[in-house]
Design a protein around this nucleic acid. Structure first.
Length: 261
DNA sequence: ATGGTGGAAGGTCCA
């Protein structure tokens, strides 16, 4: 089974990129973030036409929005309203093989890394603390967690550890909490099993840098985790950097993982 | 220190 995650930054604008990606990479299950559309405008039919007849999505006008589209059936699905908000930042589905996939869009957190002055940062920290509590009390097997977590936890998940230590996405309060979630939830951070921790690895390059590829000031904000008991079945994990060079790209690129399930 | 760009909107917020 080939599963991918991608912050698409508007599914309506980039539906053709999604269709091409699904077909050319032969994806079975795709988790999307920042679809940026209410459910009534989600391009359901186009995806159905090319075989992705199982879809679960939840969106809102302009902001957020998550979706899971699949060639395989779901036997269960749902979501949690994190921080008691009705924003569309999370979905989960259970596949017929009883593997549960969680798809997250964690709040970006605004500019100031200070919970007492910046409500967006406070929201982000509360959100990841709730994630930690949730997954430490849940059963810690047969799960997958993917998405745009908006945190680059390791030194070489950013282009300059020193220069980004006080920049939202790489501050110690964020990176330590994220590593804590991995620890307490019994997760394996798949991409770091395939690319050693001392090598630079990114999934996002800002739109604000025209020479994104040459300057290469990226961050690894997107993640693919799997329960420890399933890790031996994982065959490959790839960050699909090609899509960042496409015309009108998302600022995030997909992660593709092959699992023998 | 600042601003750089892009998306959904059709002004301004958010990333």
């Amino acid at each position: 089974m080939r599963i991918a995650t991608w912050n698409i930054n508007s599914i309506r604008l980039r539906i053709n990129q999604v269709l091409n990606f699904l077909k050319s990479q032969n994806i079975d299950v795709l988790c999307l973030q920042e679809t940026k559309t209410p459910n009534e405008f989600f391009p359901s039919k186009e995806l159905e036409k090319i075989g992705y007849v199982h879809q679960y999505f939840r969106g809102e006008k302009s902001y957020n929005g998550v979706a899971i589209i699949s060639k395989f059936e779901f036997i269960d699905s749902g979501y949690v309203n994190w921080c008691n908000k009705d924003d569309t930042r999370h979905l989960y589905v259970k596949l017929e093989n009883y593997i549960e996939i969680h798809n997250f869009y964690v709040p970006a957190g605004g500019d100031e890394p200070d919970i007492s002055t910046n409500p967006k940062f406070e929201h982000k920290i509360s959100f990841i603390n709730e994630m930690k509590n949730y997954f430490s009390s849940e059963i810690k097997t047969n799960k997958i967690l993917v998405g745009d977590l908006n945190i680059a936890p390791l030194e070489h998940d950013v282009w300059s550890h020193k220069q980004l230590l006080n920049v939202v996405s790489h501050t110690p309060i964020e990176t330590e909490t994220l590593l804590d979630i991995i620890q307490t939830g019994n997760w394996i951070d798949i991409m770091r099993e395939f690319v050693p921790q001392n090598e630079k690895l990114y999934s996002w390059w800002s739109y604000r840098n025209r020479n994104w590829e040459i300057s290469n000031r990226g961050r690894r904000l997107d993640h693919f985790w799997i329960s420890k008991n399933l890790f031996s079945l994982v065959k490959s994990g790839v960050i699909y950097k090609d899509s960042r060079s496409w015309e009108k790209p998302s600022d995030h690129v997909p992660i593709i993982v092959d699992i023998d399930i």
